[in-house]
Design a protein around this nucleic acid. Structure first.
Lengths: 345, 345
DNA sequence: TAATTTACCGTGTTCGGTAACGGAAAAATA
DNA sequence: TATTTTTCCGTTACCGAACACGGTAAATTA
């Protein structure tokens, strides 16, 4: 174990511990000769600093800024919360505190403001969900120039400065979704329910899933037709109207999927129109989705552990900041769970 | 935060830090009056000891004994390993080391020896998989009399002295298994493959799953016949013989399940006899099982995160031992994952 | 009342690091 | 050569808690 102390190193290299300390912290005031000797001794003895003694003595508290979209209770981004709380309490032991910064995922100015707010807190590390890709690239460039490490969650952007990234394999999620959907009964027509507003966005986050889904269908069910209906989460009546119209026109549809977390939005419609017997698959374990799963309206949910992403992102950062340990793996994809009514709890 | 120090408490209660220290450790040499006053001040100020300063000063290293069945690579009990390693490295930060003790799960004497061996190490805590129930009760009684906290993994026994327990919901697992198995095609006959040796055991660990499975069938598929075939893991040829005989007698069987982790044992037989198209469901993500899943011979695996059980058991114990914090929840059931070829990785 | 025991309690050192202070030697300048 | 400036380095006082040591007052005993 790390039983070698600074004192040992000092003794072994014939200098005082003050000098060793200077070397360890890269401060000046050490001749090249002794610096080299000390480094050699550290190597030989396998000296490892005692983090807690260090924290105790220095007393510095660092912070990690977590930049995520804001949410109302029950929404997707709320799922990150438990992971953040858990990781934050562990990080607190290492004198690092987690500060939250939220932004409106449909408003790029809000995102910019959030980035500035985060920077103003002088964080030692940043966790960020890069929904706005171009804007994120600007921000991370700034982080890099300041030497602040950062971790992506949800998705990542193509660059090379991040410490680690946690994401969901979107393509494979869509592929899996198609498999589950078509598993039970032969399918000829499928309805995909999409969110109106996602069309407005810089980039639709579910596009990867759609591709995976499409490829599965093409490879395994080439005769299957896929329909799309767009709904607005804020307009429940509109949802019912559009779906009603759709089912009048396509009474043969027996399969429904969504690629976002809002499958619960169509549950009232299905219940009110006696359509409980369709095969319905969605994503993410929102409370409302789980209810629909238990009641049998939704047959399966694919979940991808957002809480784990958040927790591990924070862990990686704290370990890097205080222990200077890089994460074991840089790009991480979380596991996809299949939830049915029998394993929802 | 825990910014209140012993010094603060001492100052606020008008005594020296030595006295406060005595109170904190329940040592004598303090008048009743000052003891009460100090306790009150501690309460008021919300004093919380700085664990790391404490560890630094005391320098004591404690150990947790983990008593699990021994295994050869690729077996079920090997799945615990990664969780143990992870938790052990975290525990090491808190000056607690994890020591392993293994026993032969089919030999009660070996179990007894393991318990004695564990005790001999003077552990500050014990993690145990209680495959031998009666014998475990004797052991935990001893632990209780010595004031050593313990946590159950895999299953628990009915008593009341444990710190926490982690287990799999066996009944629900069997229920889920039946659902997955029958999901795809109507089923009239099902084959359950069981392990010969489990009949010899004190208690078959998979009995709960069998009950859940049976109930599902009874409730949802009353016309379905369930067959049993017993195999011996050490005798691959015997496996092939028995299964061959079975399928000659029951050529209509299209569904196979196991309730243990050994579904991989029947894979060679299925492959060699062109039976890849059956619906096959098993338990646990052993490497061999995952291979069978990816190759398509096995359709689904239900896994229950043994590594998480182990990790959390060790976490609970270390937190209790050094921080004196009791776990948030005493009885814990881990989540059941459904693995298919599309989410195996 | 003097001597001794007991009950209380404060001080100082230590754990492994951090960081400020100040002194001595070497280098640069006058 | 004398003086100033650098460069290098040892010493020391912390951080928050643990624990041993030793000392004083009160309670017992003689």
């Amino acid at each position: 174990m790390g039983k070698v102390t600074i004192k040992d190193v000092a003794r072994a290299s014939g200098v005082s511990k003050g000098t060793v300390d200077r070397v360890l912290h890269g401060r000046e005031g050490v001749s090249r000769k002794s610096r080299e000797k000390i480094l050699r001794v550290i190597e030989e003895l396998g000296y490892e600093p005692n983090v807690y003694a260090s924290l105790l003595a220095s007393g510095i508290v660092r912070s990690i800024a977590v930049i995520l979209p804001e949410y109302t209770p029950g929404e997707f981004w709320g799922l990150y919360e438990s992971g953040i709380a858990k990781a934050a309490s562990e990080a607190a032991r290492l004198n690092v505190e987690v500060v939250r910064v939220a932004y409106n995922q449909y408003d790029i100015d809000s995102f910019r403001a959030a980035c500035r707010e985060a920077l103003a807190k002088q964080p030692a590390g940043v966790v960020i969900a890069p929904l706005f890709q171009a804007e994120t690239a600007l921000f991370t460039a700034e982080l890099r120039s300041k030497g602040i490490p950062y971790v992506f969650v949800d998705t990542k952007i193509e660059e090379d400065g991040y410490l680690s990234s946690y994401g969901m394999p979107m393509y494979r999620g869509g592929y899996l979704c198609a498999d589950i959907l078509s598993y039970r009964r032969p399918c000829e027509e499928i309805l995909i329910v999409r969110i109106e507003r996602d069309k407005l966005r810089q980039s639709d986050p579910t596009v990867g899933r759609r591709e995976g889904f499409r490829d599965f269908i093409r490879e395994n069910l080439p005769d299957c037709t896929v329909h799309n209906v767009f709904i607005d989460p804020k307009d429940p009546e509109g949802v019912a109207l559009r779906l009603g119209k759709f089912f009048r026109e396509h009474p043969g549809v027996r399969h429904i999927a969504t690629f976002n977390s809002r499958i619960h939005l169509i549950v009232p419609f299905l219940e009110q129109n006696g359509l409980q017997d369709l095969t319905v698959v969605g994503f993410d374990n929102l409370p409302a989705n789980l209810d629909a799963l238990r009641s049998g309206v939704v047959n399966a949910l694919i979940t991808q552990h957002p809480e784990e992403q958040a927790a591990r992102a924070i862990q990686d950062l704290t370990e890097f900041i205080v222990l200077k340990k890089s994460p074991a793996q840089r790009d991480n994809f979380v596991h996809m769970d299949i939830l049915t009514r029998y394993n929802a709890d």
